[in-house]
Amino acid sequence: MTEKNGLLTVENLKVKIGDKEILKGVDLKIGPGEVHAIMGPNGTGKSTLAYALAGKSSYEVTSGSVTMEGENVLEMSPDERARKGLFLAFQYPSEVPGVTVDNFLRVAYNTIKKEELSIWEFRNLLKEKMEFLKIDESFSGRYLNEGFSGGEKKRNEILQMAVLQPKLAVLDETDSGLDIDALQIVAKGVNELLPEDSSVLVITHYQRILRYIKPDFVHVMIEGRIVETGGGELAEKLEEKGYDWLKEKYGESGKDSD
């Protein structure tokens, strides 16, 4: 079932964490170069979708399929998915003491790109991206996320994305906790540092980030399902009207019958 034009195809994806079903049948198609946004109230399964796509082990897929360029993603380990071109910018990235940003990222780069860039070659590449994202030079020698401020962590995630050049970048609440200046820099990074045909999936509660990263498609997730899909105008409508009208239409009291 190769889709010539599809990069990522998610069909009827159901995911459990422990005993609780969080995703109750998600369908999503992302083509190359497209920007998609998933919006929705808190606790509705947006981040679960991000983690499930990346292959977190405690997220149990009970049915459905996920394919990337026609290949079954669900059979791949998290690192295989990453090497296939799937990148997740974490909402809460882990701290890894003793491992510097540049060393870590060089190993990641060489693994994903199947290259052997020397320390010096890689440093030049990294420096260029850091300048673009207005990140101080000393940053690359710091231990990964250790003692980083919230904003530094987010910027570090985007730096990694810029270096690793994924086919699909999933941004999990990257906008949360960023001031407007930082948000603009991060958005500029997403818009300008990825290859033309890379796709982006922005997961967010707020419409704010979508002013800077223009989505081609906006999806609304309510209680583990994508219930509405539209263009940029849907985001604006949500900004205006909030989520309540959708909750009423599709929430517990609405239809929920499989």
């Binding site: 990346a54 292959g55 977190k56 082990s57 380990s77 998290p78 690192d79 998915r81 990453a82 090497r83 990148f87 997740l88 974490f90 990235p93 882990s94 701290e95 890894v96 870590f104 990222l105 190993v107 990641a108 693994t111 994903i112 990694q160 690793l164």
Partner: peptide
């Protein structure tokens, strides 16, 4: 931590 590094392509 392991998942985070794996997500950057590094095997477990």
């Amino acid at each position: 931590q392991i998942f985070y590094l794996q997500q950057r392509g590094i095997p477990e």
